[in-house]
Design a protein around this nucleic acid. Structure first.
Length: 552
RNA sequence: GCGCCCGUAGCUCAGCCGGAUAGAGCACCGGCCUUCUAAGCCGUAGGUCGUAGGUUCGAAUCCUACCGGGCGCACCA
């Protein structure tokens, strides 16, 4: 807000300079307005003069002097201007401007930080999309939380968000699942059985088989088809996945079964459309997609010689459906092991005449679990993995969600179970939550001491002049644009870092200054400040799906 | 061999559409509870930002090459 106002003033200043002949239109560049790392350099700083100096071949400090002249000092926004270093113009904003943020936060409350940049735009966030072959593993957990946080962020800035889970309950994987279940079933009945070579070895298969035995006895012992076993397994596993997601507070608007693409002939449509454009050809009994036309190193098979499509074809058809359903933006959250599929799908939608820049793929790197200082090896098939449920049992939902979001998607995430469980006191999650609990406690304390906070409109804002108080206000002021930037960049970790920093600022302030004291006007102002900080901490935590406890 | 990601403090990681002395948490060491929650605070220490070039007034940030690690490169998904 404040930054945007200053930016606007800077733009006017540039225009005025052109009119006065200080510099020419050609000097336009992407000059920036930023918050300097060093507080001695003011609240904001612009490199405008230096950027222009490069283009105009003039002395940057002389140009900076002209910028200062044009910007001028105004009580409403600019308290002082100084030229520093190679030609920075450092701007100090009056305390009153920062203090005015307080009532804004308190009045807006839960709405503070919400934005409108996405208004009128429909976005689809596809995530998890795990086929029902087993419980969700920690890798899925990261994706689930990441996708959910991204969806929450996008909603917060005004997008109309749909969350979708795409899955496939047909195909080889599922057949093997059914065979594995049948084998366990026969085993439980004490009958001869043959466990598939690459079958699923997890105990959950045995549980499903046992349930099947309890329900149907040995009625299925002569059943040759894998179908009933597959269906039973699928049903149970989906119930399990769904339960895990619910536990993580994650909901989907839609589950999209790959199957429907076949039933409606959408798969055939894609092939026909591509063939018409000459992008498809037959070779060795298979149907190939001319991906080399899109700069790829080799062409790819769409339909195998057996007549079955590869995963590529339904993926393309699915994305075409996304376009047809009218989304302005499609966000796919994938594990990095799916990286190879991305260029093919994008080439596919482009070939079909859609704008592939409307699809953004967020690839997240793997999660490595560390226990007792050693890395835990994971494989779904061998069932040597830690499930999300087990993780939640150990560390709780808040810690799991927070930890999964602490790293940017590009980075591998090391989840140290020892740290997250045994030493949970040192947890950054608690650090932030403790800040919130403290803030609630202060309000209770004030009430019990009979110190009324008073009317917001009557607060002596000018009393909030300590450096720590102004710093807190500056952080609060920065929150809305932080949310907006994090949303558009699809990077929830920014919010996590912000919350840690804000909590830190508050803890520090709390230890240095007393909020409730003898000076009533000052106490009231500080209580309102505490309330504003609480509101932002709570809003931020809520936005990433972590609870903001009233006491700890 | 090719593509994508990563390489920043002892460890885990921010910062990366170029900016002024490179940050946080953990771990280590030393302090702070008769007063609003010590799950907290204050202080000390810790760095050739993988290496070498290049662009620039200015590079952790952009470009190139190389080194190291991860993930892919199926008529599996």
């Amino acid at each position: 807000m404040i930054k945007a106002q200053l930016q606007e003033r800077l733009n006017q200043c540039f225009k005025a300079g052109v009119e006065k002949g200080y510099w020419t239109e050609a000097a336009a560049g992407n000059y920036g307005l930023e918050v300097p790392k060093n507080p001695d350099h003011g609240d904001f700083s612009t490199n405008m003069a230096m950027i222009m100096a490069g283009k105009e071949r003039k002395n940057p400090r002389e140009l900076a002097a002209l910028v200062v002249e044009l910007l001028g000092v105004h009580d409403d926004l600019v308290a002082s201007l100084t030229i520093a270093g190679p030609g920075f113009v450092n701007i100090v904003v009056p305390a009153s401007v920062w203090q005015a943020v307080l009532p804004q936060v308190c009045e807006t409350g839960e709405q503070f930080g919400l934005g409108r940049v996405g208004e009128g735009k429909k976005v689809l966030v596809e995530f998890v999309s795990a086929n029902p072959t087993g419980p969700l593993s920690v890798g899925h957990g990261r994706q689930a939380v990441l996708g959910d946080a991204i969806a929450r962020l996008l909603s917060a800035v005004g997008y109309d968000v749909d969350r979708e889970y795409y899955y496939n309950d047909a195909g080889r994987q599922m057949r093997v699942l059914g065979e594995s279940t049948r084998a366990r079933y026969l085993e439980l009945l004490g009958l001869p059985f043959e466990f598939p070579e690459d079958g699923y070895q997890g105990d959950y298969i045995v549980d499903i088989a046992r349930q099947l035995k309890d329900e149907k006895g040995d009625a299925l012992k002569d059943t040759v088809e894998v179908q009933p076993f597959k269906e039973a397994a699928e049903q149970e596993i989906f119930k399990d996945i769904d339960g895990t997601l619910k536990r993580l507070q994650i909901n989907f608007d839609n589950y999209y079964n790959e199957h429907t693409l076949y039933e409606d002939g959408k798969i055939d449509d894609v092939v026909a459309a591509l063939r018409e454009k000459g992008l498809v050809y037959d070779k060795d009994d298979a149907v190939w997609f001319r991906t080399t036309d899109f700069g790829h190193d080799k062409d790819r098979v769409l339909i195998k010689s057996t007549g079955e499509p590869t995963y590529r074809l339904p993926d393309i058809a699915y994305h075409r459906e996304k376009f047809r359903r009218g989304y302005d933006w499609m966000v796919d959250i994938f594990g990095s092991d799916h990286i190879a599929t991305v260029p093919d799908v994008l080439a596919g939608v482009k070939a079909l005449g859609y704008d592939d820049s409307k699809v953004t793929v967020v690839l997240h790197q793997f999660v490595t679990l560390v226990r007792d200082g050693k890395q835990v090896k994971m494989s779904t098939r061998k069932a040597t993995f830690v499930t999300v449920d087990e993780l939640l049992d150990e560390v709780g939902i808040d810690v799991a969600r927070f930890f999964f979001l602490m790293r940017k998607a590009d980075s591998q995430l090391e989840f140290d179970l020892d740290l997250a469980t045994k030493e949970s006191q040192e947890n950054p999650v608690y650090y932030v939550q403790y800040g919130h609990a403290r803030l609630v406690s202060i309000q209770k304390q004030a009430a019990s001491k009979g110190v009324a906070k008073g009317e917001l409109a009557a607060v002596a804002l000018a009393r909030l002049g300590e450096p720590e108080e102004l710093d807190l206000l500056k952080s609060l002021a920065a929150y809305p644009s932080l949310v907006e930037n994090a949303a558009q960049a699809l990077e929830p970790h920014r919010l996590i870092f912000f919350l840690q920093e804000l909590a830190g600022q508050f803890h520090s302030y709390y230890n240095k200054h007393r909020i409730i004291g003898d000076d009533l006007a000052l106490s009231q102002a500080r209580l309102w400040l505490a309330e504003a900080v609480r509101v932002v901490l709570r809003n931020g935590l809520t936005l990433v799906g972590v609870t903001a406890p009233d006491s700890m």
